Amino acid sequence: MTCLRLPATRPGLTRLAELIRQGGLVAYPTEGVFGLGCDPQSRASVEMLYALKSRPQAQGFLLIGAEVSQLEPYIDTDRLGAQRYAEMRASWPGPITWVVPRSARTPAWLVGGHGGVAVRVTAHAPAAALCRAAGTALVSTSANPHGLAAATTVEQVLAYFGESLTGCSKRRRAVSGVRAVRWPRPGCAGRRSS
Rank of each mutant, 00 (worst) to 15 (best):
P95A: 14
P95M: 11
P95E: 14
P95H: 08
I96G: 03
V99A: 04
V100R: 04
P101N: 10
P101Q: 05
P101Y: 01
R102I: 06
S103I: 04
S103C: 11
A104W: 07
A104M: 08
R105E: 15
R105H: 13
R105W: 07
T106M: 11
T106L: 09
T106K: 08
T106C: 15
W109M: 02
L110S: 04
L110Y: 02
G112R: 14
G112I: 07
G113H: 14
G113R: 07
H114E: 00
G115T: 12
G116M: 10
A118R: 04
V119A: 04
V119K: 05
V119I: 15
R120Q: 06
V121Y: 10
T122I: 05
T122D: 08
A123H: 14
H124E: 03
H124D: 10
A125W: 01
A127D: 07
A127H: 04
A128H: 10
A129P: 00
A129W: 00
L130G: 12
L130K: 13
L130W: 10
C131A: 11
R132L: 13
R132F: 04
A134K: 09
A134M: 11
G135Q: 10
G135I: 08
G135L: 11
V139R: 08
V139F: 00
S142G: 05
S142L: 10
S142W: 03
N144D: 02
P145C: 03
H146I: 03
G147P: 02
L148V: 09
A150K: 02
A151I: 03
A151G: 00
T153S: 15
V154T: 15
E155I: 08
E155F: 05
Q156L: 03
Q156S: 01
V157S: 02
L158E: 11
A159R: 09
Y160K: 05
F161D: 02
